[in-house]
Simulated assay, not measured.
Amino acid sequence: MAEIEIRNVYKIFGQNTAQTIELAKQGLDKATILAKTGSNMGLADVSLKVASGRIFVIMGLSGSGKSTLVRHLNRLIEPSSGEILFDGQNILTLNPRDLRAFRMRRVSMVFQSFGLMPHYTVLQNAGYGLTVRGEPHAQVRDIAMKWIETVGLKGYENKFPFELSGGMKQRVGLARALAADTDVILMDEAFSALDPLIRAEMQDQLIELQRTLAKTIVFITHDLDEALRIGSEIAILRDGRLVQVDTPGAILRNPANDYVARFVQRHANHALAHD
């Protein structure tokens, strides 16, 4: 398990980084900053803590910065300024060798687009992280098979990704992340491309796995229903700024502003429609 802390993170795409950050500090919105500087404000002064062993959901609409933020946690994206700490260590100070070790052993990622190797079997994909680490072949096979069975794909271990449905591919991605046995699992819109029934099944499986494994999971979604169902805590972003961090119940009872209130109202309308 790992506790994550994000401190005053800004991410600017484009030139004039210092000027753009200064304008963001003055409270100018994303569109105004773009007009003045030609730069896109991806994140503006985002600070939050992710408790270890919990499912922490980051949500927002397209362009809110949620996927940008989660990619900072394994340094696929570097911040323009700020700090990112795992158990008190600022990962931005890691040298290339230590960063590779960090990515192999401490954090894994499940992508919306599955991210599977098309020329690898389900077994080879599930064991990929262990293979990269140099683990013995027999050990890789045993561990990969354990998680293939856990996610309900026993019998498919020798199939290739093109032979699987979307839901099955996503299960392979989850098995790969679990097989790597990292402290943290990042899930970027991992269930968004799935049909509603399969999506609900994957949510159930994730919740059950969390109860068993107590991993720290950072889950990205644009769907409040999904966030409320799986999250211990939810952070809501809008145009690169953090607008509320709270428990699901607190967000439903006390939305921080009109933007969050509209999400909550849509959730209420959806619930009534299916009652």
Rank of each mutant, 00 (worst) to 15 (best):
V243T: 14
M145R: 14
P248Q: 01
P248N: 00
L213Q: 09
S232L: 05
A227S: 07
L206I: 12
E157S: 05
T216K: 02
E135L: 14
L174N: 00
W147E: 02
G129P: 09
S192V: 13
N125D: 10
I207M: 15
A138Y: 01
H222L: 09
T221G: 01
A227D: 00
D204W: 05
V218K: 03
L197Q: 10
K215D: 01
L164D: 03
N158E: 03
K154Q: 13
G152A: 00
D204I: 09
Q244L: 08
E233M: 15
V184N: 11
D188A: 08
T150N: 13
K154C: 06
P248R: 00
I217L: 08
E149M: 08
S232I: 07
V172Q: 07
E226V: 04
R199P: 08
K146P: 10
A179G: 09
T150K: 15
R141I: 14
A144S: 11
L224D: 03
A180G: 02
D181G: 01
N125M: 08
F219A: 00
L242D: 04
D223A: 04
W147I: 02
M145S: 12
L130V: 04
V184K: 07
T212G: 07
Q210Y: 01
A235C: 13
F162G: 10
A179H: 11
K215W: 04
R176I: 06
M168A: 00
V184S: 12
A235G: 12
T150C: 11
I251V: 12
G166A: 06
